[in-house]
């Protein structure tokens, strides 16, 4: 998971135009500065990387009540395990 986590953090970072510094598990999702386009792109790139389908509706916030980037990583980990 460590390599996978690193890869996902890279994807998130490449879209986090509003963020100064590195993306870590503790980074607040609200601080990433991502727009509706970026959310769709991040999910797509993660799906390609992990070969999973992330269930979400583009009109809703796919991060739901997630607070930190770590929450996203845990949710993806769950998706992989149920695959």
């Amino acid at each position: 998971m460590a390599d996978m986590e690193k890869a996902i953090l890279e994807i998130v970072k490449s879209h986090a135009v509003g963020l100064v510094g590195d993306v870590t598990r503790d980074t607040l999702i609200a601080d990433l500065g991502i727009d509706s386009f970026s959310v769709v792109e991040i999910i797509y790139e993660i799906e390609e990387k992990l070969n999973v389908e992330v269930p979400f509706n583009a009109n809703e916030n796919p991060f739901g009540d997630m607070n930190k980037v770590g929450d996203l990583l845990d949710a993806l980990d769950g998706l992989i395990k149920t695959k």
Binding site: F37, V40, E41, I43, Y44, E48, A58
Partner: peptide
């Protein structure tokens, strides 16, 4: 390959 999700936009 799958279409890019922003293709429609």
């Amino acid at each position: 390959r799958r279409p890019h999700p922003l293709s429609i936009l």
